[in-house]
Nucleic acid binder design. Structure first.
Lengths: 226, 226
DNA sequence: GTGCAATTTTGCACACCGTGCAGGTTTACG
DNA sequence: CGTAAACCTGCACGGTGTGCAAAATTGCAC
């Protein structure tokens, strides 16, 4: 999971000629990766996410089935990679001192200042438009969020080198469960009217839910529960 | 996931003759279920958990492959069911008033008074004896814990009917992540010596880890992180 | 006990998944 | 241009999960 485009060890460490001139190899890899992601994005908008097969994605991306598996280990892995890219853009600003002695509040601040990309919200809508709470669909999303929790755990481990493993593991999982629950609550409010285009109010609602969820985390679920 | 033995709607509500006399049907189902669980338990002790196939389990359980899938949707689903049984025994004592306005502390208390069944710890050891942190094995466990989080969420939803969905969802996920992280930390200490039989000290260590993890949850991860 | 209906098991077929492998194609570089 | 490395592709294989229909088993009434 969350393996980028690493078809082979590649020319890493070989001291490539110029990082500003990527070369055909790198370009093709980026293009292929984008084609796969784009193909999945289209298909997910057309039919229930759980019904999308690797063959369909590969064909629409103009790539062999085998090549798909060279880039991603599965369809959930594609989603995890896309989501992780967005998450990575958000937490580049994570230093040990930013985290300080209250990581939850720090992460909460990040989500407020950074903003949630509309692209991400578009994925959420697409993934749940056809047959939202099918068993298979809910399982797919569960896999993705679990994947992201593992990813965040690695990131936290990088930022807090000597930290207690229990601390890092539980925190990462809890934070991601906030996103997961937020997505669900957000979608539940959304399917009443079903606007094709997301309004700024929709984005705000997502932020509100997320902030509330992270608030529960911050005070140990002692808020009014009902 | 977590579907019990519900091959068909069965004679539920039909007002069977006597709930104390299960009849051959029910008895056979219970036996078959136990045979499947037992077969998996044996196989997991013999080879890496990720290498166990449905065919192997079915054959050892003396049952056809198709019948396995009548009882469980997958191998992770078997584990989820077993673990959920143990968890259910622990939280039968959950009333709304026991939970009160501090659910984390309430659950923490339950884990202290109830005790962790050694059977469960035995599963943990078996699942990780051969090739603990293989990709496939870690994925298997991840699936099981995510499954259990969904299960706990349902239980919390039953106990706290009017509660905020965000509250229930994030709490369930966070609590289960404590168990997951505890298992991992506990195993890491264990594989130094590798006793075949678990000592009481091992059980105590599990409790200590778990209590510490739930403590992090209770105070919003503001404890010393390093 | 005999027969019938409901339930359960089983075998089979099918689409799909993920991976190793070998051969062909493209790219990098001298 | 030529070579070596990196990459794409087709193929085959074992495994998964599900629908379906034919047995086999059980419950129940007579």
């Amino acid at each position: 999971m969350l393996d980028g485009v690493t078809v082979r060890p590649d020319s890493v460490g070989g001291g490539g000629p110029d990082p500003a001139a990527p070369g055909r190899r790198e370009l093709n890899k980026v293009r292929t990766r984008a084609a796969i992601v784009g193909a999945l994005r289209e298909l997910v908008a057309e039919l229930p996410a759980a019904d999308v097969t690797v063959d369909q994605v590969a064909e629409r991306a103009g790539v062999s089935r085998r090549t798909f598996f060279n880039y991603f280990g599965s369809i959930p892995a594609v989603l995890s990679a896309v989501f992780a890219d967005h998450a990575a853009a958000m937490i580049v600003q994570l230093d040990p001192e930013v985290i300080g002695d209250d990581p939850v509040t720090a992460l909460r601040g990040l989500t407020r200042t950074h903003g949630i990309p509309e692209d991400l919200l578009g994925w959420f809508v697409a993934l749940n438009r056809h047959g939202a709470d099918t068993d298979a669909t809910v399982l797919l999303e569960r896999t993705v969020w679990a994947d992201l929790a593992a990813w965040l755990r690695e990131r936290l481990h990088d930022v807090l080198p000597g930290a207690d493993p229990l601390f890092v593991a539980t925190l990462a999982s809890a934070v991601m469960s906030c996103f997961q629950a937020t997505e669900e609550a957000w979608l539940k409010d959304l399917d009443v009217d079903r606007p094709e285009q997301l309004s700024p109010a929709d984005v705000t609602r997502f932020h509100d839910h997320l902030d509330r969820a992270l608030g529960l985390l911050a005070d140990g679920w002692r808020s009014p529960s009902a």
